[in-house]
Design a binder for these strands. Structure first.
Lengths: 137, 137
DNA sequence: GGGAACACTGTACCACGGTACAGATTGTTA
DNA sequence: TAACAATCTGTACCGTGGTACAGTGTTCCC
């Protein structure tokens, strides 16, 4: 079973100890069980959950959005159709992010490819490269 | 030519007027030319540049990282190899982001696909879906 | 040429996402 | 059974990325 203390979980997922308490306050992670002393005991599930939060944050999702993602489920309050609808919205967002990243990647690659022609290049090569690929909002 | 005022640019790229001044202070956008009165006049390049900043922010890059991306260029200070090296680092980051987004997408799709089986699902369907696909850091 | 609308500078304030105490308990180990 | 570490709660503080004035000058339009 192996339950983790606060510092153990913090080390495992590489976040500050206090961040865990903050996430708990924010409702991003559920209140863990406690020992009689009041000490928190985290199940291994928490590792996955906090990892997910960190990942999603790095991808530009806010904590509120992450909370929404984590709570997407069918229950008596939320019908299947509602869940599907929200999920589709999130999926569309993710597709957009992927497409944008792909454009930036292309621009960077164009940049490095043209790099052998040394000497100063234009004002802002990455933007030029993006424009040459039809970068639009 | 059509130079833009602060409010015109702000409207065009859909940011607050003050944000433009903030980006200028931060060095994310160069100081634009001024009229004799001191009023800023933005060339159309600024539209692309601010768009790029907004995009990159939504993808989880910090303003410092964005600044670095925007200043990637070959000049007397920076050799071709150095630029290439930094660009490769950024490319790797972007690949990682894309891969993570793809995993999340798959998990969401798994979630909606299994949705017809209505009634309450597990504690956190998206994490379960991710785990079933071997989600790791 | 007078008033509304806009821009200028400087500075203060704000929300988000943490991070750091202080002071009290509990756990561990020599 | 000390004493040192880890945890508890509450609260205060911090960096990032803006956003909002106040007070003054400029532009536009009737």
């Amino acid at each position: 079973m192996s339950l983790l203390s606060r510092s153990q979980l913090a080390e495992k997922v590489n976040v500050n100890i206090e961040t865990l308490r903050y996430y708990e306050r924010r409702g991003l992670i559920p209140e863990p069980q406690r020992k009689d002393s009041g000490y928190r005991q985290y199940s291994p599930d928490y590792v996955v959950r906090v990892h997910f939060i960190q990942k999603a944050k790095a991808l530009g999702f806010t904590l509120n959005e992450i909370q929404e993602l984590l709570s997407l489920r069918v229950n008596s309050q939320t019908s299947c159709d509602q869940v599907r609808e929200r999920a589709e919205l999130k999926l569309a967002e993710m597709d957009k992010k992927i497409a944008d990243l792909q454009k930036m990647k292309n621009a960077l690659q164009t940049l490095t490819a043209s790099c052998h022609s040394d000497g100063p290049t234009g004002e802002c090569p990455i933007l030029e490269a993006l424009e040459s690929e039809g970068f639009t909002l």
